[in-house]
């Protein structure tokens, strides 16, 4: 069977956005290694981070193959302004409530995105997605369990969770920022629906849980077209961290 050539520009934008999302949340999670509230969470956050960085490496591998570029260079050698992760991931590590709120919002959105890519017409991506969904189930379980625990815990736990949800809410929907030329992905059968429709599915999916826990449904993004641009100071700090070793000896083989 021959596979039709994919729309390279649109596919590149999709892979870059997904890889950058997984890369950035993976590094944010890894900041908890050694300082999580309990030992089990030290292990859990380290394991989640390892999963996400592994997913990013696989996605950068696909992007590198598509563009003829080195996956490591894509991951580490771009200036901060060239990353295309969503602004939901741009708020710094924050406290534990912030980490759980971010993970819940991102994991639930990522699940909708992966579902829209499963069975797609470009096998390198749809094959990988078939594997990712099996792993991401554990991430969602973790985020939902902690969201419930903090929301029902009352007192400081609930107060901090509400502060975190308020801080993140205007950027929550940025996972679904429309991608350049994304209609070509739908036409090619790579993506099941465009981003506004995926955002609608995400809201339908998280609505019952948020209502049950008395948590607010995030509003639409304030600047939907800039949801993967304008990364601020917290990301520039994180970028400085995750590129520091690479920049210390440019070009060396590790």
């Amino acid at each position: 069977m021959t596979v039709a050539a994919p729309p390279v520009v649109a596919l590149g934008e999709l892979l870059r956005s997904m890889a950058d999302d997984e890369f950035v949340i993976g590094f944010s999670d890894s900041e908890w290694t050694g300082i999580a509230p309990i030992l089990e969470e030290d292990v859990a956050m380290s394991s989640l981070a390892q999963d996400e960085l592994g997913h990013a490496a696989a996605l950068y591998g696909l992007l590198g193959g598509l563009l003829g570029e080195d996956p490591d260079a894509l991951a580490y050698d771009r200036p901060p302004g060239a990353y295309r992760h969503c602004r939901l991931l741009d708020h710094g590590r924050g406290d534990w409530a912030m980490t759980i709120a971010r993970r819940f919002l991102y994991d639930s959105a990522d699940a909708v995105r992966l579902e829209a890519l499963a069975g797609g017409s470009w096998p390198p991506l749809s094959d990988l997605v078939g594997k990712l969904v099996r792993e991401e189930r554990y991430h969602r379980m973790h985020a939902e369990a902690w969201l419930t625990r903090l929301a029902r815990g009352g007192g400081e736990a609930r107060t901090r969770l509400l502060v975190a949800m308020r801080t993140l809410q205007s950027d929550a929907a940025t996972v679904f920022t429309p991608l350049p030329e994304e209609a070509a992905l739908v036409d090619a059968g790579i993506l099941a629906a465009r981003m506004p429709e995926l955002e609608r599915r995400w809201r339908a999916a998280i609505g019952p849980a948020l209502a049950d826990l008395g948590l607010p449904m995030p509003p639409p993004a304030t600047q939907p077209e800039r949801g993967r641009l304008d990364h601020g100071a917290p990301f520039r700090w994180l970028w400085g961290e995750f590129t520091s070793v690479r920049r210390s000896e440019p070009g060396v083989a590790w």
Binding site: S46, M141, H142
Partner: peptide, 13 residues
């Protein structure tokens, strides 16, 4: 079940 996350990605405790 103590934790869904163990010493490697494929193990729970």
């Amino acid at each position: 079940l103590e934790s869904a996350f163990g010493p490697t990605q494929c193990r729970a405790i």
